Computed example of a mutant assay.
Amino acid sequence: MNTLINNLAKLSAVTLFVFTLAACGDSDAEDAGEAIDEVVTDAGNAVEDACEDVKETANAEDKDC
């Protein structure tokens, strides 16, 4: 559970950083969109990893998330 909370905290920090760069930088919207897409993908992977860890710890039969 702590892993999930840590991953969500990291995601929040990265998201804030990306939005700050997008707002203050002179990069175009495509770069900002790609950065946000990467953050969302990383978040999805982190949630899936946390789910798999919980199922592995609980010795669940179905380990897919």
Results as ranks from 00 to 15, higher is better:
residue 16 L to V: 09
residue 5 I to A: 08
residue 25 G to F: 04
residue 32 A to D: 04
residue 48 E to R: 15
residue 60 A to S: 03
residue 59 N to S: 04
residue 18 V to E: 12
residue 1 M to A: 11
residue 29 A to M: 14
residue 55 K to F: 00
residue 45 N to L: 04
residue 25 G to Y: 03
residue 8 L to Y: 09
residue 13 A to N: 11
residue 33 G to K: 10
residue 20 T to H: 06
residue 23 A to H: 00
residue 50 A to C: 03
residue 4 L to C: 11
residue 41 T to K: 14
residue 5 I to V: 07
residue 2 N to R: 09
residue 7 N to G: 05
residue 11 L to V: 11
residue 8 L to V: 12
residue 20 T to G: 04
residue 35 A to P: 00
residue 4 L to F: 11
residue 1 M to F: 05
residue 7 N to F: 05
residue 24 C to R: 15
residue 59 N to M: 05
residue 57 T to G: 01
residue 31 D to R: 15
residue 46 A to S: 15
residue 63 K to M: 03
residue 16 L to Q: 03
residue 14 V to P: 00
residue 62 D to N: 05
residue 32 A to M: 07
residue 17 F to Y: 07
residue 60 A to M: 04
residue 19 F to D: 10
residue 10 K to D: 13
residue 57 T to A: 12
residue 33 G to S: 13
residue 34 E to P: 00
residue 54 V to G: 02
residue 19 F to N: 08
residue 10 K to A: 12
residue 5 I to W: 05
residue 1 M to R: 04
residue 28 D to W: 13
residue 52 E to K: 15
residue 42 D to F: 09
residue 56 E to F: 03
residue 49 D to A: 14
residue 46 A to N: 13
residue 46 A to D: 15
residue 2 N to Q: 10
residue 44 G to E: 03
residue 10 K to I: 13
residue 5 I to K: 06
